[in-house]
């Protein structure tokens, strides 16, 4: 049975607290400008994105050093011993997943905490999410009619087929102040 580990992101539940992003740093001790996971805010809501461990990883195709690999559980990894820091992968990835590390002059990226997963633990980001906005699923065996393959702020998924699915934001009722246009 093949497996493709992926993220399930519930945009309705994400409160943008960035615990996932910092838990990633706490776990992986990434250098200063290196953000394996990034929480962003737009007028539509919050997004938490990391490497999406694509079914069709463009980073891997363009790498002249063949530094990428994909585990049988779907996790895409970069071998820092092979990376020369040419940054082609950074331009190829639509999700800003590969990050250039100015201290090592190499690229690094989210490895879905495979050392944790190999011990039966969840990735640090998923573990840190208190609202279950970020979950881990095996996309080969995941089906939910409520889930969608893309939401606001997600770049075109067609070429790369990212291993992430989403629950969109539901409609809500608001009563904003009606301002008198005096001043």
């Amino acid at each position: 049975m093949s497996k493709q580990l992926g993220f399930l992101f519930n945009a309705d539940h994400c409160i943008g607290c960035t615990a996932c992003e910092i838990a990633c740093r706490n776990e992986n001790h990434t250098n200063r400008n290196v953000r394996w996971r990034k929480v962003s805010k737009s007028s539509e809501g919050f997004l938490s994105l990391s490497c999406n461990h694509c079914n069709s990883p463009e980073c891997s195709r363009v790498c002249p050093e063949n530094a990428f690999m994909k585990r049988h559980d779907g996790i895409v990894l970069i071998d820092s011993n092979l990376c020369t820091g040419c940054r082609l992968c950074i331009t190829a990835c639509p999700y800003e997943a590969p990050q250039f590390d100015y201290e090592t002059n190499k690229v690094s990226k989210c490895q879905m905490c495979y050392p944790r997963q190999d011990q039966g633990l969840l990735p640090a980001c998923v573990d840190a999410c208190s609202t279950e906005a970020l979950q881990l699923v095996d996309l080969e065996n995941f089906y939910d009619p409520q889930a969608v393959s893309s939401i606001f702020g997600i770049p075109d998924i067609r070429i790369t087929q990212p291993s992430i699915v989403f629950y969109p934001i539901s409609e809500k009722k608001r009563h904003f102040l009606v301002e008198r246009s005096s001043n």
Binding site: S56, E58, N66, I159
Partner: peptide
């Protein structure tokens, strides 16, 4: 053969385009 993976990804890109 160790570069064949590129051909695979290229084929998928070509498919989508």
């Amino acid at each position: 053969p160790s570069e064949l993976f590129r051909s695979y990804q290229e084929a998928k890109v070509a498919f989508e385009i």
